[in-house]
Nucleic acid binder design. Sequence first.
DNA 1: TAGAGACTAGTCCAGTTTGACTACTTGGCC
DNA 2: GGCCAAGTAGTCAAACTGGACTAGTCTCTA
Lengths: 197, 197
Amino acid sequence: MSATKLLVLGIVHLSGGAHGYQVRSELQSWGAESWAKIKPGSIYHALKKAAADGLLTEHAEPGNSGPERVLYRATARGRDEMVELVRDGLRRTHDPDMLNASIAMLPMLTRTDAIAQVNERVARLEAELVVQAEWREHPNRDTPEHVRDQAELWAGQARTELEWAKSLSKRLSEGAYAMADDPGSWRTVPDHLKMRA
Amino acid sequence: MSATKLLVLGIVHLSGGAHGYQVRSELQSWGAESWAKIKPGSIYHALKKAAADGLLTEHAEPGNSGPERVLYRATARGRDEMVELVRDGLRRTHDPDMLNASIAMLPMLTRTDAIAQVNERVARLEAELVVQAEWREHPNRDTPEHVRDQAELWAGQARTELEWAKSLSKRLSEGAYAMADDPGSWRTVPDHLKMRA
DNA sequence: TAGAGACTAGTCCAGTTTGACTACTTGGCC
DNA sequence: GGCCAAGTAGTCAAACTGGACTAGTCTCTA
């Protein structure tokens, strides 16, 4: 699951450097433990992995109060990789967790880029709906009835997502949200994302 | 992910005994590799695990043609566990894979039981929608705007699922599908599920 | 009739996830 | 001033997943 990777990189980047527990609390406060199913162990693993891959740097900090901590900071490669992950998550259907994580990190992208990725998602969802419709018109003879009806749910979900993606694209076009290339963007980090040093 | 466990137990049960490759091909033919993201390694693992847990029995079969195979058969405990998994998957929201797997194995339940579980899901989805609506009316001050809009998608998905669950419950009440307690149920295993011995 | 390609059956192990566990500090409160 | 609860920070082994890999058997077909 690279949703964990994306969120961890994102939090470190947004806070301009963070240690494991901080990432963990931040994700918890976003309710990410529920919608992205992220457990503590995975966070620490993702941080170490990212550091080993050169996406983050590690700085050991002697615990002035409490146990020793490791401070992580995003590298240039880490930022690039993260932006790529956000773009992928927006574009690709079939991975709800990545979509959720990408939306959470949406302001990492420039406005035009974000719109392009969301539009690509719209196109893919439309294509999938066409395939599904065909499949239901010419059903496979030995697919059980209840499995065919299940496709009804998938199609419904896809349609819901499609409408939502369209409206997101529209909102973005109309200037909603502070994106990476806007004044007052995430570069002016909102309070709740600031490092609680 | 216990969706793998459920599907593997289910296929073994439905075929009245199966070896790994058979389970694998069956799942493939259902398109499960895509909607449940199941890979070969996980299938063989799940089979061994289930055997170790006493949910399946293992019988080594000398390969009359081709390599040696291991035949698995469901035990009574395995059947009970599977039925419990199907009921859980129907009831509990927040796990789409389990829902998909449970629907695939729906005819394992008796009609009244299935209806009860689906109705429970309906109730839970309605409760979630209420909570979400409240959350959107009284938004947390420092939740970023784009994260609040994401909730729009979740709510939409929940509504879609709700409608679908209601209609499934209705279809079941009207006698759709051959359930476990019906004549002509899965006990009369359809051709495409029969062991290709 | 040998060799290519497809099918059958499963192993292997590196990588990832889980969640229980350790260990230390702070603050309250009796 | 001693003890408990809550908070801080992270480790660890066990379990699970992914998917490349092995290894035999048919089946054409040139």
